[in-house]
Design a protein around this nucleic acid. Structure first.
Lengths: 343, 343
DNA sequence: ATAATAAAAGACAGCGTTGTCAAATATTAT
DNA sequence: ATAATATTTGACAACGCTGTCTTTTATTAT
């Protein structure tokens, strides 16, 4: 494969195939009205010359460049890496380029910066992930650009064609039932950052599962964290120091669940004999702590692919054929056990 | 700020400033030989119209597009995310675009795919991270492209202008001394994947520190893992089941160190009283396990910035002014303690 | 066989920049 | 003041592609 210096242009291909450059262009873009025979001829020339269309020239000539932006802000490298790889993989397959744009929430100029970025990079579509996809001020601004966008796991109310969701509610319902079936009645819950809407769907699933089982959620068993390990530690300390402490704790994400495990260790509360703990996300860390956490696995790569798929459909005005709700799945590990009366 | 529809072109700016488009182009690219007065005029027009040069047109017109590729393959989202953000941040500041290209080692067509990608995306420079930057077959192929490249933390022998290094050797020396100073004499070591050269610098640092302290490294205390948690578990089991087990273990990365902690827990070996454990990398997970790991912190973001900085200098033929060896630093947490004779 | 129509192919002008070279203007030396 | 030179500006052709419109060729109907 000859890479070094590859200024093979559409003209070279046209010359070799003995057609006009426009015909080559037609073949490249699979436009209609090209004779089968001609297509073969052109493809042969393309193969022979190892021709690659120049994306800059294409973008310049087209009104809509095939470029999309992935805008994120997440404290969790694990999350964004996998979603990003899904997006990249899908886009690469369909000839789109992706520009990655990390931002910081704490930055006051977040919105202006993001708008500037979009303008500068001339993307034609946008994907955002939580918690950014939950940030109404930003999403409103994006709306004004009337540029196709996809919100991943957003709690905001937008059209189905503009979001990719996971079934956080159902998964939470299920993992709560996992605890209930094991005899737990006093179950503590550590909510996530209130502004992260999607994480809060997890509380809803928990709440409804409890209700269905005729169990009450006492106020003292509900704590609110910020999704971080440190915030989880504070909540865990309160929960586990209660005179009548819960026999199980469901934390809205793995980091906070890991904090529960750590605090329990410090208080010499044995997991899972005396306390069951479950998290959410299935970060790799869940397998590295002792005991390994029971949690919910999210197919992040798939979510990234679906987001790209949907966005490209919007961009090209074709209909989306992919899955609509991406299913998470319960992963049972060593942090949950049957509740023993004796304790 | 008006974003929607911003087809402000260089011509619009030229009209408003009453100069030719070429003069505007000169100002944009800070070319010499433009009167101070003219610069002011043009800048005013640019500000007023909120003009952004069209990067596609620029790339098309220039011989060298301002685009670089970040090619990686890493099992560690934490690592790549931070390096990537450093690269992005620096590049954005200097008007470069970044294309991210994740690959899989297990893919037989890795090299061909990568070459195809480079050709397709028409980047003018490349950054790679370990373990890809340690993969001679790939780097050789990249060499043939005679395209500027930077290898991050590579163990391969290349010119200093082509790599960004951390002082893994010194840091390992230091963390080993940390153990030695605490009275440890029998220290086990879990090496990383032999093909990850940079991780193996860590063994060298360990080995030399031991030698300097006149301590012997018995063969049975040296294990070789694959950088993964699972591989670490296997090594840890062997090490901790030795009849005369080490009083401390240094694992070449945090994942494997976490495995040592987990195995120790299972065997009811108390950390740090009966066993000290140290890792390397300072992944967030190190703070979530109990006890929190003593480890070495790598300034990943900075490394990404430095890589981008060096690459852009190579690309633009200016001289690199940044740091040359990026300093890691020892982070002492709860997994290390003084060795007590009694045990 | 001929006209009417559909399908296929081509010519050519953009898209928004930068590079090259020529023209205009300012500066310096005589 | 004039010539010689340096500085500043501008005209115009690329860059490699796609969109529009026209021309050619193939197909069908009469």
């Amino acid at each position: 494969m000859n890479i070094k210096k590859s200024p093979v242009t559409i003209q070279d291909v046209a010359n070799r195939a003995k057609v006009s450059i426009k015909t080559v262009s037609r073949v490249i873009n699979s436009e209609p009205n090209v004779a089968e025979k001609t297509i073969k001829k052109v493809e042969k020339a393309i193969d022979f010359l190892d021709y690659q269309p120049n994306a800059f020239a294409q973008s310049l000539a087209r009104s809509q460049p095939k470029i999309i932006a992935l805008i994120y802000n997440t404290p969790s490298p694990n999350y964004i890496t996998h979603v990003m790889e899904g997006v990249l993989s899908y886009c690469y397959k369909f000839g789109y380029e992706v520009i990655i744009h990390p931002c910081r929430f704490d930055d006051a100029s977040l919105i202006d910066d993001t708008k500037l970025f979009i303008k500068k990079s001339r993307v034609s579509g946008i994907i955002t992930t939580p918690p950014l996809s939950d940030f109404p001020e930003l999403i409103n601004q994006l709306d004004k650009l009337d540029m196709p966008k996809i919100l991943v796991s957003s709690g905001l109310v937008v059209d189905a064609s503009e979001k990719v969701n996971t079934n956080d509610y159902e998964a939470s319902f299920e993992i709560t039932n996992h605890l209930i079936r094991r005899g737990h009645k006093r179950i503590g819950f550590i909510k996530g950052n209130p502004s992260h809407l999607c994480v809060n769907q997890r509380f809803a699933g928990f709440f409804d599962a409890m209700k269905e089982a005729n169990l009450v959620c006492e106020g003292e068993l509900i704590e609110t964290g910020l999704n971080s390990f440190a915030s989880g530690e504070i909540c865990a300390k309160r929960l586990l120091n209660l005179k009548n402490r819960p026999s199980a704790v469901f934390a809205a994400n793995d980091e906070m669940a890991a904090a529960v495990v750590k605090v329990a260790n410090q208080l010499s509360i044995d997991i899972p004999q005396s306390l069951s703990v479950v998290g959410f996300d299935d970060t790799p860390m869940t397998q590295m702590i002792s005991p390994a956490l029971t949690t919910v696995h999210q197919p992040l790569f798939k979510m990234g692919e679906a987001a790209a798929n949907k966005l490209i459909c919007n961009l090209e005005n074709t209909s989306y054929e992919g899955e609509d709700d991406i299913k998470s799945r319960l992963v049972v590990r060593d942090s949950t056990a049957h509740f023993l009366k004796s304790i």
